[in-house]
């Protein structure tokens, strides 16, 4: 009962936080659009008409999008439409924001879930493999290699994968999302970008767990190493890894924007950046809102999973 109450409190905390963060991120997106240098109407017209931009199209864009109104009126108008769940219409395409943002979110989440899942799977294997060899040559080699690899930017990893698997071997598409296998290279790029740090977290967790009392007790009882690892050490090892998910997701969003551009994916990160640059306020706020909500949601899921994995933490206050 006490554990359920703890989980409920975490859940309520995160729902409230999600609402607050969503509004804050969307508002920041609005402010970012307003703060960017230059007249907003010119940026909208350029995004809308490309090389056919003219002074007349700028005037049309200004009138059609309501940019001639007071900034506060524009903001309140968006708040009003978002309360109905519509988020308004894009100032560039004229289409409703929600379907476009949602489609981009699906593209991004497909790549993110596969990439993070792959990174998690591989990091657990690596973490256990090297963690059980603490201070031996394999462990030292891993620590050295992961320190170097963690400094390689994701776009370099992506270019290397494209060159090898798309251009040289021609096994996988280089870009675009119209082929079923499109997510493989972006997901692998993301996974490889996350792998060094995640593997170190896993390795350190394994080392700490194996230094604990119960693995020693298991060995005294004559249990095999695989049994000790998978029956006793696996679950406590997962706790720091799952707890690391919150900052990991926030870190991942930046990497995903790079991956979107490199692989020509219409992801939510690119949509946010493009819409801020194009001064497409409803789209920027819609994308910002969805990103904010998803970061809080992953944090919440991570906290709940940590409590489920380690019930002792259910009384701890995980959300400020």
């Amino acid at each position: 009962m006490r554990r359920l109450r703890g989980l409920g409190a975490v859940l309520i905390g995160h729902v409230l936080a999600a609402a607050g963060v969503a509004v804050a991120v969307a508002t920041l997106a609005f402010v970012a659009v307003q703060m960017a240098p230059g007249d907003v109407a010119f940026r909208i017209a350029e995004a809308r008409y490309g090389e056919r931009i003219s002074l007349q199209t700028v005037d049309q864009a200004r009138a059609a999008t309501g940019m001639d109104q007071n900034v506060m009126v524009q903001y309140l108008r968006w708040v009003e439409s978002s309360l109905t769940g519509q988020l308004g219409r894009s100032m560039v395409s004229g289409r409703p924001v929600m379907p476009d943002v949602w489609r981009s979110f699906q593209t991004t989440s497909g790549v993110a879930v596969t990439g993070v899942g792959l990174a998690l799977f591989m990091s657990l294997i690596i973490g256990f493999a090297v963690g059980m060899q603490q201070d031996r040559i394999l462990d030292r080699a891993f620590l050295f290699a992961s320190a170097i690899l963690s400094s390689v930017p994701s776009f370099l990893i992506g270019i290397a994968l494209i060159t090898l698997f798309a251009i040289t071997l021609r096994w996988l598409p280089a870009a675009g999302n119209n082929r079923p296998g499109y997510a493989i290279l972006p997901s692998c790029t993301l996974a490889l970008a996350l792998l060094p740090d995640l593997s170190r977290v896993a390795r350190n967790a394994v080392v700490r767990t194996l230094q604990d009392f119960y693995p020693t007790y298991g060995r005294i009882k004559g249990q095999s190493w695989p049994r000790i690892v998978f029956r006793h050490a696996f679950r406590p090892t997962l706790v720091p890894i799952v707890a690391y998910f919150g900052p990991l997701v926030a870190h991942t969003i930046g990497g995903l924007v790079v991956i979107d551009v490199l692989f020509n994916l219409d992801g939510v990160g690119t949509r946010l950046i493009d819409s801020v640059l194009a001064a497409d306020i409803p789209m920027a706020m819609g994308a910002g809102l969805l990103i904010g909500v998803s970061v809080v949601a992953v944090n919440g899921i991570s906290d709940i999973m940590v409590q489920l994995l380690d019930p002792r933490l259910s009384t701890a206050r995980l959300w400020p």
């Binding site: 096994w171 996988l172 082929r179 296998g181 493989i184």
Partner: peptide, 8 residues
């Protein structure tokens, strides 16, 4: 890889 190649 097979998914990618068959998709192609």
């Amino acid at each position: 890889v097979a998914t990618g190649r068959s998709a192609w």
